[in-house]
Write a protein that binds this DNA or RNA. Structure first.
Length: 991
DNA sequence: GTGCTGGCCTAC
DNA sequence: TAAGGTAGGCCAGCAC
């Protein structure tokens, strides 16, 4: 949705982009909607003042705008309306507000500023006014007014619209029409309108030829290939697969190859292609922050002037803009914003970063994780070589590039991204594009605004002021230990939403200060000392929204049960997910200090109620389930966090534990106000409670068989641990909890430690990743991943980790006492330079504490001794680096291959010392055998990589750092080289 | 060594 | 301009 002023009539026109059932793109020019905001009316305002008020305001605004081509009448008119401020309870009385209508929404900020700072108005003098709806995105308000949500169906009946003559088309859409807003019918996504439009989706990927060792820069390095896949939403396969190549490229079965000898021509051809395809959605991997920006800058460098017209509007250039997005949830991120009117840029990387917590977000890692499919990864330094080879090497690259364009489509399909995002847009009402480029708040604002409009409530533009923090939830002090009896867990379902509904907590019901003029039964005093009127006096807007969301979720879940069509089933599942997330984000919205409408009275009341509820639950359980009441044991709440309690009833079997849990849940629920509900969810058996927010257990929902092993907060689920630790802890827990085999677990741990100290652990297992959350300057202390990122930036600024990236590193051996942050190194650099790993670090700082934490409750004080003091830790290890430290000053001497004694100058060129000479032949044979074994291993790994890349006849060019095979292949390669050198030393002898 | 702080990541 | 919340474990670095 976009807005402009028609030149002839001086009325605002809104552009609405859409797709019809046949998949044709449509641009509708909408008339009859006038932008507006509200402000508080001055006391005693009269109808007759309005004309003067309008003039004065218009004058003040025009002075402020100081724009030559500013319209003469920015303020079109002012009306007096009876409304209510949403913030606070006002005895259900409406008051007067001014509705200020203006010519274009872009003037809203100026008008807002003038009203708030105040302006001179004859009758009333200099005065400021509180404004309403003036800081809410205009698109959101427009849609709310017209009852349009993101991705819903809009019907435009025959006869109410006029099809434009092709010569009058402003856009590249297939159909362009004019109509009045009163003639469009917006359908909620229900019944037949649940279906999803057949959107055209273009996925693309580019390759650039960077210089050696430097990350490509658009000002210098050419774009050499652009691969494209076009698919209709709902269909299984792309109907267009093609690739634009610079220079020739051998044919590829199933894909169209279009070669150009000049880069500028290729770019222009691609740009034409995009306009021809006219996609609704443009996707790919990291296209928003890399590919699109690179193409735009490259086209600018090459002066391909017609390139950047990639949007739907003919005369609007696509440009990139840097925006900084910051939130506590997502950290700080520098993003690019790209305008492409009428199309949505749906970058899959952004989707994954938002929705999934992964150790690595490279397309390789993600493809493997979700599709169980490896993808070859070509290092940017190799790309130039392939480009400068022949049509076959370029074809090689093209195949790779095509796959990178294809995989995002596969992932979108597998993860149902489009469906889920569309459902989120429908549920919250925001446009699809907002979901990736904006935060959580806008979704709540959109829903709140819609509800407010129904009840003639106005949302004030609040000044942000950072208040104090408020108290959160209770975490019950855990009774730590290993429990070999079933532990029943009870949860409040949708705790915070149900508290808000139960106690009618809302902006509209908030009483400021103690209510003297109300009867006690008319209001609620919350445990945090705030006051809200009861629903009998006024039903809150937030409780109503939440109630609708929860009910809609129930409906969606019910419909899922009845749905036979697998596609519609997925849509419904996406919907119930969106509904749950929406309900949960309302509380966060009221607590967001830097937000559109913060209300700490609400959020602190919510958490305060929550705290009393978990306390009461614990108390009720322990009071009731006692031997003196006829139960077999005294029950004990051993842990609980926010909305859950873990209960040891004492019984030794699941059937009884579940029955008691069920009963307790029902009993306790009955003591709370509706719709607050405590539910029995599961039993853990056995249960290992390590600390607050740290536990593991076998998760049972039915007594027969466990559903899964559930680990919370421990190393297995934390991304800042090496896979070595995560896997080790995970296997040990499995052995302890599932197999109930402590001895097996101990032996496994010992074996792993021994393997580590003997350098038998693959480097891919030792990679730790941490996110770079700030710029270098902002960090107070030194840290491994930060220091490494700085080091890498010096090596190659382009490919070094950036703000918001996860930095992978391993800890290499260094001199004694060297700080850890000095020993962090890039895993690939470690491989290439054959740096030794600091295995002691991994044992002492990575493995030992987590291991002891999980074994301690079972082995008690023996744990440390058994695990860390045994013979398995005595293995000799290399702890001094070859470079750095003292090693740098000692000259390497050749040693005898048999007895390791240093060779004398005379023997220098021999393989063995004179002592061992008789054994030389035997040694040589042995060395040859090793060589053969290594070669065999290398060949097997190589073939495996060839298979992965889909061809047994071509070189392996993959350097996928997320693939263990890559590291193994590299290591064997290195070993081969060294072995070859050794064998060379036998070379002087004539056999 | 001890205690504190900053940083990261998770639970809910 | 835009940006959901608090509780809390645990580690490395740093001051003393």
């Amino acid at each position: 949705m976009k807005e402009s002023l028609s030149s002839a009539q001086k009325v605002p026109i809104f552009r609405l982009y859409g797709v019809n059932e046949g998949g044709n793109s449509i641009l509708a020019h909408l008339y009859g909607y006038v932008p507006y905001i509200y402000c508080s009316a001055p006391n005693g305002v009269k109808q007759t003042d309005l004309h003067k008020f309008t003039e004065s305001l218009n004058h003040a605004v025009r002075n402020e705008v100081k724009q030559k081509d500013a319209p003469e009448h920015i303020i079109l008119g002012i009306k007096i309306e009876s409304k209510e401020n949403i913030y606070g309870f006002h005895g259900n009385k409406k008051s007067l507000f001014l509705r200020i209508e203006l010519v274009l929404s872009k003037f809203i900020p100026v008008v807002k500023r003038m009203l708030e700072t105040g302006f001179e108005f004859p009758t009333y003098g200099m005065q400021g006014y509180q404004t309403f709806e003036s800081n809410i995105d205009f698109e959101i308000r427009f849609m709310a007014d017209l009852h349009i949500t993101g991705c819903n169906w809009i019907e435009i009946p025959a006869g109410v619209y006029k099809i434009r003559d092709k010569s009058e088309y402003m856009s590249r859409c297939q159909l362009e029409i004019d109509l009045n807003i009163k003639d469009l019918i917006s359908h909620p996504a229900e019944g037949e309108w649940i279906k999803i439009a057949p959107l055209r989706m273009l996925s693309f990927d580019i390759e650039c030829a960077g210089r050696k060792g430097v990350f490509p820069e658009a000002e210098k390095d050419p774009v050499i290939q652009i691969a494209n896949m076009v698919q209709r939403q709902g269909e299984k396969d792309p109907f267009i697969r093609n690739i634009f190549t610079l220079n020739t490229c051998a044919p590829i079965v199933g894909s169209q190859v279009m070669s150009h000898m000049k880069e500028g021509e290729m770019l222009m051809a691609w740009s034409n292609f995009v306009r021809e395809v006219d996609p609704d959605i443009i996707t790919g991997y990291n296209i928003q922050n890399f590919d699109i920006a690179y193409l735009l800058n490259r086209a600018k460098t090459l002066k391909v002037d017609l390139f950047p017209f990639l949007g739907r509007l003919k005369n609007i250039k696509t440009t990139e803009k840097k925006v900084v997005l910051q939130s506590k949830q997502m950290g700080r991120r520098e993003n690019k914003s790209i305008n492409m009117e009428g199309r949505v840029i749906f970058d899959l990387l952004l989707v994954l970063v938002r929705d999934y917590k992964l150790r690595s977000y490279t397309l390789n890692a993600v493809s493997f994780y979700f599709l169980q499919e490896q993808k070859e990864d070509v290092h940017h330094s190799i790309i130039s070589d392939l480009q400068h080879g022949n049509e076959q090497t370029r074809r090689r690259l093209a195949v790779y590039c095509l796959k990178d364009a294809y995989l995002p489509l596969r992932l979108i399909d597998k993860l149902m991204c489009i469906i889920n995002y569309m459902e989120m847009a429908r549920v919250t009402g925001v446009p699809l594009g907002y979901l990736l480029n904006r935060g959580q708040q806008i979704k709540v604002v959109s829903q709140l605004l819609r509800k407010a409009k129904e009840q003639e409530l106005l949302i004030p533009a609040m000044k942000i002021d950072v208040n104090d923090e408020f108290e959160g939830a209770t975490v019950i002090e855990p009774i730590k230990g290993y429990y070999d009896v079933p532990i029943s867990t009870l949860d409040f379902s949708s705790l915070y939403p149900s508290i808000m509904i139960a106690h009618n907590l809302c902006y509209t019901t908030l009483l400021r200060g103690r209510p003297n003029d109300l009867k006690p039964e008319e209001y609620t005093a919350t445990p945090s000392g705030n006051f809200f009127v009861k629903s009998e006096l006024r039903m809150g807007v937030l409780p109503e929204i939440l109630d609708n969301l929860l009910k809609a979720r129930k409906r969606a879940k019910q419909m899922m049960k009845e749905e036979k069509d697998p596609f519609k089933y997925k849509v419904l599942d996406g919907r119930q997910l969106a509904l749950k997330m929406s309900a949960n984000s309302v509380y966060g919205f009221t607590g967001a200090q830097v937000g559109k409408l913060p209300c700490l009275e609400i959020s602190q009341s919510v958490t305060a109620f929550g705290r009393t509820m978990i306390e009461k639950t614990k108390q009720l359980v322990e009071e009731r389930y006692q031997m003196k009441n006829g139960y077999k044991f005294d029950a004990k709440v051993i842990y609980g966090d926010t909305d859950s309690v873990m209960i040891k009833f004492g019984v030794d079997n699941l059937v009884d534990a579940m029955k008691l849990g069920q009963e307790a849940a029902e009993f306790i629920s009955s003591t709370f106000v509706k719709p607050i509900k405590l539910e029995f969810e599961k039993c853990y058996f056995p249960y290992l409670l390590i600390n607050k927010k740290r536990y593991a257990g076998l998760y049972f929902t039915k007594p027969e068989k466990y559903d899964k092993m559930d680990c919370k907060g421990i190393e297995t689920v934390r991304r800042d641990n090496s896979p070595l630790v995560a896997n080790l802890i995970s296997v040990c827990l499995q052995k302890l909890l599932i197999d109930r085999d402590p001895t097996g677990a101990i032996n496994y741990a010992k074996q792993t430690i021994s393997d580590l100290l003997c350098n038998r652990i693959d480097i891919s297992q030792l990679v730790i990743t941490k996110e770079l959350t700030k710029t270098d300057k902002e960090y107070a202390g030194k840290q491994a991943h930060v220091e490494l990122a700085n080091k890498m930036r010096k090596r190659d600024p382009g490919s070094a980790p950036q703000l918001g990236d996860r930095v992978p590193f391993v800890i290499v051996a260094g001199s004694k006492g060297q700080a850890t942050y000095e020993k962090a190194e890039d895993p690939v650099f470690v491989l290439e330079h054959n740096l030794p790993i600091d295995t002691r670090y991994y044992l002492e700082n990575q493995i030992s504490k987590p291991l002891i934490r999980i074994f301690e409750p079972i082995l008690h004080e023996r744990a440390e001794f058994v695990l860390l003091k045994g013979e398995h830790t005595l293995t000799k290890t290399v702890t001094i680096s070859k470079i750095g430290g003292l090693a740098a000053f000692t000259k390497k001497k050749e040693t005898c291959l048999s007895c390791k004694s240093i060779l004398s100058d005379k023997e220098l060129n021999d393989a063995v010392c004179s002592h061992c000479k008789p054994k030389e032949s035997e040694l040589y044979q042995k060395q040859i055998c090793t060589m053969a074994a290594l070669e065999d291993k290398f060949n097997r790994l190589w073939t495996q990589c060839q298979r992965c890349q889909g061809s047994l006849h071509e070189d392996v060019i993959c350097t996928n750092q997320d693939c263990p095979i890559f590291y193994m292949r590299k290591k064997v390669q290195k070993d081969l080289q060294e072995n070859d050198k050794l064998i060379g030393r036998f070379g002087k002898i004539n056999w």
